[in-house]
Amino acid sequence: MINGLIYSGQLSLSAWEPYVHSLAEQAQSFERRWRRFLENKRVRVEKLYLPLAMSALKDWQNHRLYLAIDTTVLWNRFCMIHISVVCCGRAIPLLWRVLEHGSATVAFNEYEPMLRKARWLLRHHPDVMMLADRGFANHDFLSWLQASNWYYCIRITCDTKLHGIRRHIIEASSIYPQKGEAAFYRNVGLWQDVYSLILWSGKVTYSPKVSSKK
Rank of each mutant, 00 (worst) to 15 (best):
R167C: 08
L74C: 07
R32G: 02
Q146V: 13
I81V: 15
M130A: 11
A183Q: 11
M54H: 03
F30G: 13
G164Y: 02
E171A: 13
D127A: 11
S174W: 00
N138Y: 01
A27E: 09
I92Q: 08
P51H: 05
T160S: 09
E17A: 14
L115C: 12
L94G: 07
R155Y: 00
A27T: 09
L65N: 02
L99V: 02
W150G: 10
L74N: 03
Y152P: 03
L197E: 01
V43I: 15
N109D: 13
S148Y: 00
S211G: 08
R77F: 02
G4P: 01
D70A: 13
S196V: 12
S55M: 09
T157F: 02
V210D: 01
M130C: 12
E100T: 11
A91E: 03
L23C: 07
A183T: 10
R123Y: 00
V106N: 07
R186Q: 09
R32I: 03
D59H: 13
D133E: 05
Y185R: 05
Y152A: 14
R33V: 06
R186V: 02
A27M: 03
L23I: 07
W96C: 14
I170M: 11
V204K: 14
L38V: 07
N3H: 06
Y206L: 11
S196C: 08
G164K: 03
H101Q: 13
K117F: 03
C153E: 00
V98P: 00
T160L: 15
S143P: 00
A137V: 12
V210G: 07
S55F: 08
V43F: 15
L67Q: 08
I175N: 05
Y195S: 04
V45H: 04
E100N: 12
L5C: 11
K41P: 01
D159K: 14
G135P: 00
R119P: 00
W144R: 09
E25C: 12
S12H: 01
R116K: 15
Y111E: 04
N109W: 05
Y206C: 08
V204M: 12
A183C: 12
K179L: 14
I2M: 08
G102K: 14
I83R: 07
E39F: 09
P51W: 05
F108L: 11
R166H: 09
E181L: 12
C153N: 02
M129P: 00
L190G: 05
V204W: 03
N76W: 02
L145C: 15
W120G: 05
A137K: 01
H101Y: 08
G164P: 01
Y66T: 03
W120L: 13
Y176T: 10
R123T: 02
G89T: 08
E112Y: 04
